[in-house]
Simulated scan of single mutants.
Amino acid sequence: MKILLADDEVSIQKLISGLLEDEGHECVCVEDGTDALEAFENASFDLVILDVMMPRMDGFATCRELRTRGVTVPVIFLSAKGDIVDKGIGFAAGGDDYMTKPFDPRELLMHIEAHLRRAHMDVAPAKPEPKTLMLGRFVIDTAKHQVTKEGISIKLTPKEFKILLALARMPDTVLSKEQLIEDAWGAEFVGETQSITVFIKKLRNKIEDDPSDPRIIETVWGIGYRLVEGAC
């Protein structure tokens, strides 16, 4: 995949470009938002990483301009500011993810790969979704919004059902809190990730064999959750 990185710190450029190239991706580095927009005029990219604080044009303004121009690829913000207000601005500007500096390079790579997988699925030819998903002991009826475990019906709220369905559609794949919020609430609520923790707890209380030791819905710290198919 071809990834554009806009960051005026040379050390960050070297770290991220080396990380991506080791995974077989191509990374194009620029120093600010103005250069990022120019890069898009000359090439296409599969994902964009934007530092927030940059000379000439900051990351938020750059993302807004990219969205105005019709660019739909995933955008990940990097920033030394980690408060909820700045994150809200980032998501409102059209960003898909927000990571705070300093960050764990391995965690950044997991975020990148997750967004690339999802973007690839979005552009792949759509296949009719089966009305019934069967995962081990679970049967999920997407038409009736019903879930059974070993033949016993489980009563879920609409949001709990949507979260479970999102996880069940991609078993063993890590979904970020932002992705789950978007599926359950809509894109306009993506910045409110604290709510997903509450709903995951409620969902575990209803579907886990032992909610105090969850095995079906696994927490991937710092990223999100995944449904473990082998535990279903």
Rank of each mutant, 00 (worst) to 15 (best):
E178W: 07
D83K: 01
T148G: 07
P105C: 00
R137P: 04
A119Y: 03
D86V: 03
E65I: 00
G136W: 05
I140R: 09
I163G: 02
K2W: 10
R106N: 06
H111N: 13
L15H: 02
F189L: 14
D141Y: 10
V147P: 06
G33C: 03
T68V: 12
I140Y: 01
R69K: 01
I140Q: 03
D141H: 05
M54N: 12
R118L: 15
L116M: 06
A168C: 06
D104G: 04
I49E: 03
R226F: 12
T132P: 00
G33N: 08
V48K: 08
V48W: 08
D96T: 04
G18C: 13
E23Y: 09
P128V: 14
F138L: 12
F138V: 05
C63K: 07
G95F: 01
G136D: 03
K144I: 11
D83I: 00
T148P: 04
A168S: 08
L133I: 15
D183K: 06
D209N: 09
E160D: 11
E229D: 11
V30G: 00
A114I: 14
G24M: 06
W221N: 13
L5P: 03
C29K: 05
L175C: 12
G94I: 11
K177M: 06
E208A: 05
R106D: 07
W221E: 13
V85H: 13
V85T: 14
V71P: 00
E129M: 06
T62P: 10
V52D: 02
E182I: 15
E218W: 07
L5T: 04
H111Q: 15
L156Q: 13
A187Y: 11
L203E: 00
D122K: 01
V174Y: 01
I3F: 12
V73N: 09
A168Q: 07
L135M: 12
C63L: 06
L19R: 07
A166Y: 00
G230C: 07
S79R: 02
L165F: 02
T100L: 09
D122S: 03
L50M: 12
P214R: 11
K162L: 14
L156N: 12
V73Y: 11
Q146E: 07
F199K: 09
T219Q: 09
T132E: 15
I112Q: 11
E182W: 11
T62S: 14
M54E: 12
Q194L: 09
P130F: 05
A168R: 09
I223G: 04
